[in-house]
């Protein structure tokens, strides 16, 4: 049994400690907002926050998550009120939408560490997240919009 703290809730999970967090979230706990894209930390669809860092859950074993705080897209805000979620809706960023949870979780770390990210900062932070539909321009714009929103209150 491994105890995980996910979105402020404690889960006791009966799984091999080597199991990637992604599959425990999706198959055992039932939080499917975190996506499987590549399984080898190339695409960023599975990004969750582990003690605030944007880890790729497809390669992060649950043993590493033990005793740490996991936040998934479902726990980013209760009412879609995170500035990034609002900006994503304002600019209607999504196309197929599959990668967007990972994009938002990556962007959230950027915005926390840099209140006023430049285009270069955004490129640096977001190059690990693939969007096959090509919504990158709107993602960039949404991050800047969210930064403004965050600054204004």
């Amino acid at each position: 049994m491994i105890t995980l703290n996910i979105n402020k809730k404690t889960h006791r999970v009966d799984a091999d400690p080597n199991t990637p967090l992604l599959w425990v979230l999706r198959d055992i706990i039932g939080l499917v907002g975190t996506k499987y894209g590549c399984g080898v930390a190339q695409c960023g669809a599975c990004v969750v926050h582990l003690d605030g860092e944007a880890v790729r859950s497809c390669v992060t074993k649950i043993s590493r998550a033990q005793g740490k705080k996991v936040v998934t897209i479902e726990g980013l805000s209760e009412t879609n009120s995170h500035p990034l979620q609002k900006a994503w809706l304002d600019l209607d960023v999504s196309q197929c939408g599959y990668c967007q949870a990972g994009q938002i979780m990556s962007a959230a770390v950027l915005l926390r560490e840099n209140k006023n990210p430049s285009e270069q900062d955004i490129d640096d932070a977001m190059a690990g997240n693939i969007c096959r539909c090509g919504t990158y321009l709107r993602i960039r714009e949404a991050i800047q919009l969210a930064a403004k929103d965050q600054k204004n209150g």
Partner: peptide, 22 residues
């Protein structure tokens, strides 16, 4: 690393099993 691209976001304390993994 920087922001959401810190080394240990992908590179775990041990090798990830499989080919082409971090």
């Amino acid at each position: 690393g920087v922001y959401s691209m810190k080394c240990t976001n992908c590179h775990q304390p041990v090798n990830t099993p499989g080919l082409n993994t971090p």
